[in-house]
Amino acid sequence: MSVIKTLALGAGLAGLLLSAAYAEGLQGKVIGFSQIGSESGWRAAETSVTKAEAEARGIDLKFADAQQKQENQIKAIRGFIAQGVDAILVAPVVATGWEEVLTEAKEANIPVVLLDRGIEGPEDLYLTSVASDQVKEGRVAGEFLATTVGDKPCNIVELQGTVGSSPAINRKQGFEEAIAGKANLTITRSQTGDFTRSKGKEVMEGFIKAEDGGKNICAVYAHNDDMAVGAIQAIKDAGLKPGSDILVVSIDAVPDIFAAMVAGEANATVELTPNMAGPAFDALQAYWDAGTAPEKFIITESKLYTPADDPQGEYDRRKGLGY
């Protein structure tokens, strides 16, 4: 039941995102999609948006869930090649070990588009890659905070993603770049919340205790919305008001952060769009229509959302995507 609901809503969103002009071009094309799995809500949303995008364009999408295993992805890609698909989308689970199977695809003359993550190896093994710029996401969040705070001194606590993961490294770097010039903005504490709500809450609890009951904290920057949602609860438990006593800025734009915005408890989020497939399909169409190779790296938009951007509407729009 809810799968149908998801698809219907996804199709609705896709309709909004697409211009009618593209609707004909990929009609009847067969495209394989090797997805990593469904380890997070964002991943699930990416899957449902990809399916919706494909349906809106009349693409016959062959979907394969790799359950977090590269060998499953390689198997799926070989399967796609054997079926003679027109193109292959891959969200690679790891960065290495793709040369052999992508060479096979190349020899079979099937263009490959990487989604969301990059790989190591020769660039001619794939047509293009569609991904967000994680450094930019951090920068957008930092710039928002700098503008909002103005010249007032502001101690920021940071909830990092999983130690060593590329989004954690890059989002930290981008944020630090954005506030580098501002002497009044300092990151006083930074710990990992493993991208999860419960760890986000636990770490924020510790920060509040360590910073004089939260009085020394002006803002929290979380590497993803889930940790921010956890932090919001910790702030409320400590008797403070998230959104005003402590500003809350995060990244991803999942539905629940919009719900928090509606309640006035979150100040901004930067979107990591689950629609990686849309630009990928566009690039494929341009490639087939005009024969021109697209840019090697297509960067998706890192859009900032604040309570001024109809959070209720955003919430409703995203709710059915599988986040």
């Binding site: 380890e39 809500g41 999860t196 709500r197 419960s198 760890k199 809450k201 889930d226 949602v229 609860q233």
Partner: peptide, 13 residues
Amino acid sequence: VAGDIRGADANNA
């Protein structure tokens, strides 16, 4: 754990 974050996080709980 679910009550703590007011949500069931099947991936991480």
